[in-house]
C-alpha cells in the first residue's frame, strides 16, 4: 500500500490534486443527496399492482341453456348432456384455449366426493380436445396443500393423462382484481396466471352440502379463483358467492350430482356422507344450474340466499321453466 501523500511534504500540485478530489467527492455526495431526496415520506400503502379484469367467457348465442341428465355414470351423462345443448362444438371451437375450473379443494380421494371427480375431468378434457381445442388447462386454488390436493383427488393425473395441463397456484399466478360495482371483491388477488390466453372457461363442480351457505355447487366453486386470506369473506358468504358469480361469466358450468355429498360438507371424509343422486346438470346459467342442483340436497332455492342475490344482480334466473330445460334419461 502506498500512501496518497508523502508524509512530510506537500507541494502546490499535491494540494490542488487533493482539493480537486475533495471537490469531486463533495459534488458526488451532494448530487446523490439531491437525486435521492424525498421530502414527503412514504405512502401509507405500497403501490398497487396492475389490476386485471376477467373477460366474459360466454359463447355468443349459447346463453340461457340448461340440461339435466339422469344417469349413474359421469362420462356418458356428460356426453348426453352436451348433445342436448348442441354438442361440445357449440361451446368449444377449433383453436380454442380452454380452462377447466375444477373443485380440488381438499386432499381427499375421489371416492369421498369432496372434489370434482377425475372421470368428469378426463371426459371433459377429451371432449374439448376432440372439438379442436389447442390447449386445455385444469386449475384451482385449493384449501389444503395444492400439490397434495391435485394428486390425491386424482384430478392431476387424470387431466395430464387426458392431455391437459395442470396449473397449480403459485404466488406469481395471482393478480389483483376489482369487481365493478362490487362491495367485497376490491383489489383482491385472483388466480389469473392459468387464465392468461384462455378464451373458454368451464366450471366443473361436485354438488355438496355446505354448513355456512347451505350448498356448494358451481357458483361457490369460483371461490377457488380467489387468493389471499379469502376466508374473511365467510362473514358474508352469500354476498361473496353472488359477487363471484358476477365476476366470472363462464362458457359452461357442470354440476356433478351423480353422487352428492349430502352431509358433513364440504369436506366429507366418509362414504356415509354420500348419496347417489344420479344427476348431472349442465348449463350456461349458473343460477339456474345451482338452483336445480340444491334440490339434490333436499333444499329449495329460497333456502339458499345467494341464489336470490345472484338472480337479483342479473347473473341468471330462478325462473327455470323460462329456460326450457332439456331432460335426458339414460338407462
Amino acid at each position: 500500500m502506498s500512501p496518497l501523500l508523502p508524509p512530510d511534504e506537500m507541494d502546490r500540485r499535491d494540494f490542488l490534486r487533493r482539493a480537486g478530489l475533495a471537490g469531486l467527492g463533495l459534488a458526488a455526495a451532494g448530487a446523490l443527496g439531491w437525486w435521492a431526496y424525498d421530502g414527503r415520506g412514504p405512502l401509507a400503502s405500497g403501490e398497487a399492482g396492475p389490476q386485471v379484469k376477467l373477460p366474459s367467457y360466454a359463447v355468443p348465442g349459447q346463453d340461457r341453456k340448461l340440461a339435466l341428465v339422469k344417469s349413474g355414470h359421469r362420462a356418458p351423462a356428460l356426453r348426453a348432456g352436451l348433445e342436448a345443448l348442441g354438442g361440445i362444438k357449440a361451446f368449444v371451437r377449433s383453436g380454442d384455449q380452454v380452462a377447466l375450473k375444477v373443485n380440488a379443494a381438499f386432499a381427499t380421494p375421489p371416492a369421498l366426493g369432496a372434489t370434482t371427480h377425475p372421470e368428469l375431468v378426463t371426459e371433459m378434457v377429451r371432449l374439448c380436445l376432440s372439438a379442436g381445442a389447442r390447449r386445455v388447462v385444469v386449475t384451482d386454488n385449493p384449501i389444503n396443500d395444492p400439490a397434495s390436493c391435485f394428486a390425491l383427488s386424482g384430478i392431476g393425473p387424470a387431466a395430464r393423462t387426458a392431455g391437459a395441463q395442470v396449473a397449480l397456484p403459485s404466488a406469481e399466478a395471482f393478480r389483483p382484481t376489482t369487481l365493478a360495482g362490487g362491495r367485497l371483491i376490491k383489489d383482491w388477488p385472483l388466480l389469473y396466471g392459468p387464465l392468461k390466453g384462455i378464451n373458454k372457461l368451464i366450471g366443473l363442480a361436485p354438488v355438496k352440502d355446505h354448513h355456512r351457505s347451505r350448498a356448494s355447487v358451481t357458483m361457490k366453486n369460483w371461490y377457488g379463483l380467489l387468493g389471499g386470506r379469502r376466508n374473511v369473506f365467510h362473514q358474508d358468504i352469500n354476498g361473496i358467492i353472488a359477487e363471484l358469480a358476477r365476476l366470472v361469466t363462464p362458457s359452461l358450468v357442470v354440476a356433478d350430482g351423480v353422487v352428492s355429498l349430502v352431509k358433513n360438507g364440504p369436506t366429507g371424509g366418509s362414504l356415509e356422507d354420500l348419496r347417489p343422486t344420479d344427476t348431472l346438470i349442465l348449463g350456461t346459467d349458473q343460477v339456474a344450474v345451482d338452483a336445480l342442483a340444491v334440490g339434490l340436497l333436499g333444499l329449495n332455492p329460497n333456502q339458499v340466499p345467494y341464489l336470490g342475490l345472484a338472480a337479483a344482480a342479473g347473473v341468471g334466473t330462478l325462473d327455470l321453466p323460462s329456460l326450457k330445460p332439456v331432460r335426458v334419461e339414460l338407462g
Binding site: N144, H211, R212, N231, Q235, I237, T267, G269, D273
Partner: peptide, 26 residues
C-alpha cells in the same frame, strides 16, 4: 372468534374440519 366475539358469521373452521363426522359443530 368472529361469531363468538364480534357478531359476525364465519365457521371457516367447521367447514374445513376434515374428519367425518366433523369435530367442530355449531
Amino acid at each position: 372468534c368472529l361469531p363468538w366475539a364480534m357478531d359476525r358469521p364465519c365457521i371457516v373452521c367447521q367447514e374445513n374440519c376434515p374428519v367425518s363426522p366433523k369435530a367442530i359443530f355449531t
